[in-house]
Amino acid sequence: MRASSDHIAVQVDDLTVAYNYKPVLWDIDLEIPQGVLMAIVGPNGAGKSTLIKSILDIIDPIAGSVRIFGKPYKKQYQKVAYVPQKGSVDWDFPTTALDVVLMGTYGKLGWIRRPGEKQKKSALEALEKAGMLPFRDRQISQLSGGQQQRIFLARALVQQAEIYFMDEPFQGVDASTEIAIINILKELRKQKKTVIVVHHDLQTVPEYFDWVTFLNVKKIATGPVKDIFNDDNLTKTYGINYKVAINQ
C-alpha cells in the first residue's frame, strides 16, 4: 500500500469527526488515486460535506489523519482548491465577480502581498473558462444562482491546484451551467488533476464520474464507478428504498 503512495492524491486514515460528541464520520479510511474524477454520495446527514471539510482542515477531527500527496494539509494547501456550497456565503457582500475570483490567488500570495497584474490576468482567464467574462464587473448579488456557482468555480480554477474539492456544485443551477461545469471537470481530468465532488444526483454519477465513494457515517465502498456503482452498495448506503433516492 505504501509503495504506491506516489499516486495517492489524498489519504485518509481512521478519520473520526464528532459534532457535540456525536460521531458524524466514523473511522473513515480512504485513498483517492491521483487523476480521478470522484463523486462522494450518500443520504442527507451522511457526513459528505464534513468529510471534505475535515480533509481541508476546516474541521478538527477527534481522531485520524489526512495526507495530501503524503504530507499534512498545512504543508500542501497550495496544491488544493475548494468550491464551497453556494449558500455558505452572503452574496449581498459588496464585491464584484472579478474580485471574488481574485480571492483564489490569495493563497499563493500569502500574507499582506496584494494581487497584481499577473493575478488579474489569470483571474480573467478563469472567468473566461467559466463563461463569466462579460459579468466580471457585476456586483455578485446581481448574478443568477448558476452564475454565482460559476464564479466559485472560476475562483477554484485560479488556485491552479492539483486537487479540487467541490461541495455540491450542481445544486440549484440551470442546465447550461451544469454543462459548463461538466466541461470544466473533464478539462481538469485531462490535465491529470484530481477532482472530488460531493454529489446528490445519483442518476448522473456513471455519466459524469469515473470514481465513487459511498458514505453514510461510515465508508460503505470506494472505487471505480464501473466496478462498485451497483444496487448492492446503493442499498447499503441509502437503505432499501434507494430507488427513491435515485429518482429524486
Binding site: K53, I58, S88, D90, Y106, G110, I112
Partner: peptide
C-alpha cells in the same frame, strides 16, 4: 486582502492557509 476574504468567506480563507 485578508480582512476582505475573511469577511466574505471565512472557511475558504482557512483552506488557503490563513
Amino acid at each position: 486582502k485578508e480582512i476582505k476574504l475573511f469577511l466574505f468567506d471565512t472557511e475558504f480563507s482557512k483552506t488557503l492557509g490563513f
